[in-house]
Amino acid sequence: MMRDPRPPQGAQSALRAIRLLKLFTPERAEMTLAELSAAAELNKTTTHRLLQALQSESLIERNAANSAYSLGPGLMALGVQALASSDLRRRVRPLLRALARDIGETATLEVPVENSMLILDEVAGGHVISAAGNIGTRWPLHATSTGKAWLAFDNDGLARLSDSLPPLTRRTLTRKAAFQPELTRIRRCGYAVTVDELEDGFTAIATVIRSGLGEVQGALSIGGPTQRLGPARRAEIGASLCKAAIRLSPEY
């Protein structure tokens, strides 16, 4: 399904406010009016007016000590409500538990958000050393198994990638053209793999899940230390994920 990138008429203020919220990151959790104004490419008067509106709804907080802004508790409440009301998360949760139990590694449900994959839900594996505690984290599409799976099976997925992509490790694919053979392989076998591409020592395997109309809704992933997930093990997990995705199908 093609997405219409054009904003609706009359929505300029709302879009500007949303873009201000999106400027905050874990690395830049607090920003001044001047920083926000420059990053959003808005004048200070407009930026201040939008921040006041967001602050009135507790979506933004202002630090009285240094006058810097940060995301507010209202956004946290909205995030909790969004998780609780997610039908996809409720439907997939039992399967995540089963996958984590049977495979022994961390299982995640991830959905695309702009040019990243958001971890919507996660169940930790049984090992002491495992990936866990990442619900709400976003990782770049090009460096994740879930992102690769989504790019392979979504009709306009590749449109989100830039021609040049930032490396996270020495094995990260950084050229859009390099994805074509990779995506062909993923379509053929049904699942995607990343080995030391998101982080050195971390491997993940993923496949997509679909709606009753066949649209890609998100991706299932299993991830853990590269030393435990060699080629044979990755193939086994890939096959298990593909079977699990079929079981999630409304027609199953």
Score class of each variant (00 low, 15 high):
71 L>Q: 08
5 P>I: 08
94 P>E: 06
171 R>D: 15
218 G>V: 00
38 A>H: 13
22 K>L: 00
220 L>K: 02
99 L>R: 00
228 R>W: 11
242 C>Y: 08
87 D>K: 10
51 L>C: 11
55 Q>K: 14
49 R>V: 11
151 L>G: 08
22 K>M: 07
247 R>Y: 14
7 P>H: 10
237 I>H: 04
135 I>Y: 00
233 R>S: 03
20 L>Y: 07
80 V>D: 15
229 L>G: 05
216 V>L: 04
180 Q>S: 07
95 L>K: 06
1 M>L: 15
131 A>C: 13
70 S>P: 06
15 L>T: 09
239 A>I: 05
103 I>H: 02
65 A>E: 15
131 A>M: 12
135 I>C: 12
24 F>V: 06
196 D>N: 11
88 L>G: 06
194 T>D: 04
146 T>M: 05
248 L>S: 02
74 G>N: 05
111 V>K: 04
55 Q>A: 15
35 E>Q: 14
177 A>Y: 03
33 L>D: 08
89 R>D: 02
16 R>S: 11
47 T>N: 09
205 I>N: 03
92 V>Q: 07
111 V>M: 11
24 F>C: 05
160 R>A: 12
113 V>D: 13
220 L>Y: 06
30 E>H: 08
54 L>V: 01
44 K>E: 15
149 A>G: 08
72 G>Y: 07
239 A>M: 03
225 P>A: 14
132 A>L: 06
217 Q>E: 14
216 V>E: 03
31 M>N: 04
184 T>F: 06
173 L>G: 05
139 W>S: 14
158 L>F: 03
90 R>E: 05
109 L>H: 10
156 D>R: 09
123 V>E: 10
10 G>R: 06
38 A>V: 12
226 T>K: 02
38 A>K: 09
26 P>N: 05
225 P>G: 04
175 R>W: 06
43 N>Q: 08
120 L>H: 03
203 T>F: 01
223 G>Q: 13
74 G>D: 07
92 V>N: 06
36 L>P: 04
232 A>R: 14
159 A>G: 15
144 T>D: 06
192 A>Y: 00
159 A>V: 10
